[in-house]
Design a binder for these strands. Structure first.
Lengths: 339, 339
DNA sequence: CTCCGAGAGCGAAACGTTTCGCTCGTTTTC
DNA sequence: GAAAACGAGCGAAACGTTTCGCTCTCGGAG
């Protein structure tokens, strides 16, 4: 039915090995090249990836393990990873763990069976034990966004400097006279959330300002969570004067809640958001926010993995730390007569 | 290195064919079954999917072609599709076309090379000519959410009844005394947007109410677009009294814009949103919205494709049309003294 | 007691590549 | 001008499955 290399060899009068060589970018005589190309065109030949894989043991496919797909940050990373990899002939097999540790393990096992050449993971569980199996199979892994402590120095990692930027952001609020600052984080277990929270705490500590634990709200990384937590924060006895939301969805939720309550930004409550500069710029007042280099995260991770796969290394413990930046808008009020 | 069937055969003293039979769910004698399982365990054997694929010509992988990943509707579908397919041993190869027709074609060609067993597509271009090649290769295609007219009766399709629900929604607004109704759609080219817009027009027509073209705003399916378009609508000379946003992101954008302007819902402007009942329920006032059966879309599409792949059919032109429903909240005001 | 059929197991031939170790002819080098 | 070096092409042996057409065994029907 479908044409094979043998057919091309027959048609051109060349040997099988020569066709194979051509198909893999090798040099053949000009006249043979033309003949081969003509035959390919005529027979509509394409390499059979199964046979190729059987010989080379590469699928030209990588796995992506993500906690949940309902989140702009995650999907932006996927988009960028996909773009870079596809350009290099790699497809991405996406799996969603639904933030469940068991499903995470299942997903990775599944990808292993599918013979992926490499793996990206934004981890759900702390240890991700199953990754040991992956590494034993010589499959390179790039850990993205959430560090897996026990694998430091073993797998490659791409992270954002969350601690410093969070600290700096809170410092910025403190410098503007705020001491009652709400914080919206995803959960207390997630690496990035913890880092951001630690930065928050550190800023308070350095300024010798006491923290109220109620100011720290876990909002599940969702719009809804941000909305509800913000409402809760507004009801606290010690009313906050500023709010820092640590992802895009929670930022939207906070905005909705504040607006709905008729609380003006920044006059009554100052707000600092996260990600998505486009929206922030369009808004009035222009939103001050922490901007992560989302595109770069995906692209760096992709390039790192590509390199490992090309060289058939499993990873060298290289860690790329990217900086997020605080982009000043007009959503933070300078409080003068603070007491 | 890695164990093969031959090793299992050797270890158990059985023939290769018997092991293969076992691996594919065939019956073997109890004592052999035990021996095989022990050997598999001991040698840590797994089937080599490349070799299997070479023989069977199936990759147990399907392609997913999506216009853009930054959209809850799209990602929810992927999530559901992935869940169902993975349970059946299929992986999903996700490609993002970035709403570009050329990239859409490229993506499909790419998936073809990757030897996917089936394809889901939420189409970017109107014709998607390249699908002819896919079908010629006997690969079943399920068209999701956006009908491809020329393939009616050829590929299977899963759609939402957009026209009726949009008409009904607008009728609902009209019944509540609104005649100046803004509409946020994604673009004028997209199938779903057109259907929703047609429903909107039809409702006006049936009620003999004139439409102002300026009320129809294209907002690119994004929060930002919804936000900006809503602001624009609020500035029109003929001020709208109601707004219908036709996806989740644009709904959020509209909410932001309305709240920011201090326009109370529903007293000054009534709002009907789209998708994501969770947020809608949490909000005050509870948002009236059109709810699409997102989970069902993904699951139906997945089941449909699974069936085709199992039976090695390429599709029979079956169309599943799911109903969206109007869920009443408190974000629409009944205008009494309309004139 | 014989015969038959079902069930289990087997051997070997594919599937379509890549790659190793050759040969052969042409070009370069001293 | 001979030897060496090089580039191009080739044949054949893998890679690890599935599957076709067998054989063999055993139990039950007649």
């Amino acid at each position: 039915m479908k044409a094979t290399m043998k057919d091309i060899a027959q048609k051109t009068g060349l040997g099988l090995a020569t066709i194979s060589k051509y198909m893999n970018g090798g040099h053949v005589l000009e006249k043979n090249r033309i003949a081969i190309e003509a035959a390919i065109e005529e027979l509509d030949y394409t390499v059979n990836e199964f046979a190729r894989g059987l010989k080379t043991n590469r699928s030209k496919t990588v796995g992506v393990v993500i906690p949940q797909l309902n989140n702009i940050f995650m999907t932006s990373i996927i988009t960028n990873v996909e773009e870079v990899l596809r350009r290099h002939g790699y497809g991405i097999l996406v799996t969603d763990t639904g933030k469940d540790e068991e499903r995470e393990e299942e997903a990775i096992r599944f990808l292993l069976r599918k013979k992926v050449d490499g793996l990206f993971i934004i981890a759900t569980s702390k240890e991700v034990k199953i990754l040991d199996v992956v590494l034993k199979n010589q499959i390179p892994v790039v850990v993205v966004d959430r560090k897996i402590e026990r694998l430091e120095g073993i797998t490659d990692t791409v992270l954002v400097e969350n601690f410093q930027v969070a600290k700096k952001t809170v410092q910025y609020l403190i410098d503007h006279g705020h001491t009652k600052i709400g914080l919206l984080i995803g959960s207390r277990e997630t690496y990035t959330s913890r880092r951001r929270m630690d930065g928050y705490r550190e800023a308070f500590k350095e300024n010798h300002i006491p923290i109220q634990e109620e100011w720290i709200a876990t909002a599940d990384f969702t719009v809804q969570g941000g909305y509800e937590s913000t409402k809760r924060l507004l009801k606290e006895k010690e009313p906050i004067t500023a709010l820092f939301a640590t992802n895009y969805e929670m930022t939207l939720g906070a905005l909705l809640a504040l607006n709905e309550r008729g609380i003006s930004i920044p006059e009554q409550v100052s707000l600092i958001g996260f990600d998505n500069p486009d929206l922030a710029k369009a808004m009035r007042p222009k939103l001050t926010l922490v901007s992560q280099p989302i595109e770069e995260i995906g692209k760096s991770a992709a390039k790192l993995l590509l390199e490992r796969m090309e060289l058939r290394e499993t990873g060298k413990g290289k860690t790329i730390v990217l900086n997020a930046s605080l982009e000043e808008g007009a959503s933070v009020l300078k409080r003068i007569n603070e007491k």
